[in-house]
């Protein structure tokens, strides 16, 4: 039995008389502990696909199976790390994570255990030192770390990352990518990440799902990235497998499925 199955998902938006088909016949099976990236040009519906997996957007036809059971509403078993962090600005870093922990583990863990669990997750993303600060007082990268901590703290079956580093500068992004790789190695989470950064996709993923341009976007190709872990940025620069994988994705995106509109 597959861990997560995206089964014949179509998504159409109806606006008045006009119907736009965004996604067409998406099929994908993801194993436990796998890191899968979904890459494609902007507007291809990759965020819509992630929202369907998260349950935030309903699929028009088809469905999502998690451990064999259909899921069609949002829930903490599919935690989302949002592109713009989506921390609640009136809560401190600690309280943002605590909101999730108290909701998910409220009945199951004691108060002391929950506190330890919050601090453990803040430690994982190296944000324990800023626990009493508010989102407005920390940098963009730090906010996204807290967003990841909040996602991890729900102990999700699958962590969904929606262009988590898109709004960050290149240096901060590299730091966070390393952090995510470490967390993935340590905890073995199953993760799906939306990205439009080829290097990021190759560096982090076990598989890269490449989507064709919309409307009616499909999965064009799926690339296995057979690089050993732990992966180190510097060593990969000249690694043959890395270069080949990168080339394959680039060719897909810029040769076969070039973005038609003027970007």
């Amino acid at each position: 039995m597959s861990y997560l199955k995206i089964d014949h998902v179509d998504k159409r938006f109806q606006r008045g008389a006009a119907t736009t088909e965004v996604l067409k016949d998406i099929n994908l099976v993801i194993d436990k502990g796998e890191f899968v990236s979904i890459i494609g040009h902007s507007g291809c519906g990759k965020s819509t696909l992630l929202n369907i997996v998260a349950g935030l957007t309903p699929a028009t036809t088809g469905g999502i199976l998690l451990e064999g059971k259909e899921v069609n509403a949002p829930g903490p078993d599919r935690a989302v790390v949002f592109q713009n962090h989506s921390l609640l600005p009136w809560l401190t870093v600690y309280d943002n994570v605590a909101l999730a922990v108290n909701k998910v583990f409220g009945g199951r863990k004691s108060k002391a255990d929950r506190h330890d669990w919050i601090m453990h997750n803040l430690d994982l993303v190296q944000m324990a030192h800023a626990k009493d600060r508010r989102p407005g007082e920390i940098s963009g990268g730090m906010k996204q770390r807290v967003g990841i901590a909040r996602g991890l703290a729900m102990e999700p079956k699958i962590l969904l990352l929606d262009e988590p580093f898109g709004a960050l500068d290149a240096l901060t992004r590299a730091h966070l990518q390393d952090s995510v790789m470490q967390i993935h190695a340590a905890l073995g989470n199953t993760m799906i990440m939306i990205t439009h950064d080829v290097d990021e996709a190759v560096l982090l993923s076990d598989r890269i799902v490449m989507m064709t341009n919309g409307p009616s976007a499909r999965i064009g190709e799926v690339l296995d990235v057979k690089l050993v872990r732990p992966r180190r940025r510097l060593e990969l620069v000249s690694d043959r497998t890395y270069i080949a994988a990168r080339e394959a994705v680039l060719k897909f995106l810029y040769e076969r499925h070039r973005f038609v509109e003027a970007a």
Binding site: Q126, A170, L171, R173, A174, D178, R232, R233, L234
Partner: peptide, 14 residues
């Protein structure tokens, strides 16, 4: 990030 790769080598990045 060709420039970053230098930094990415060591565990010190974290």
């Amino acid at each position: 990030q060709p420039v970053l790769k230098d930094a990415g080598a060591g565990a010190a990045v974290v």
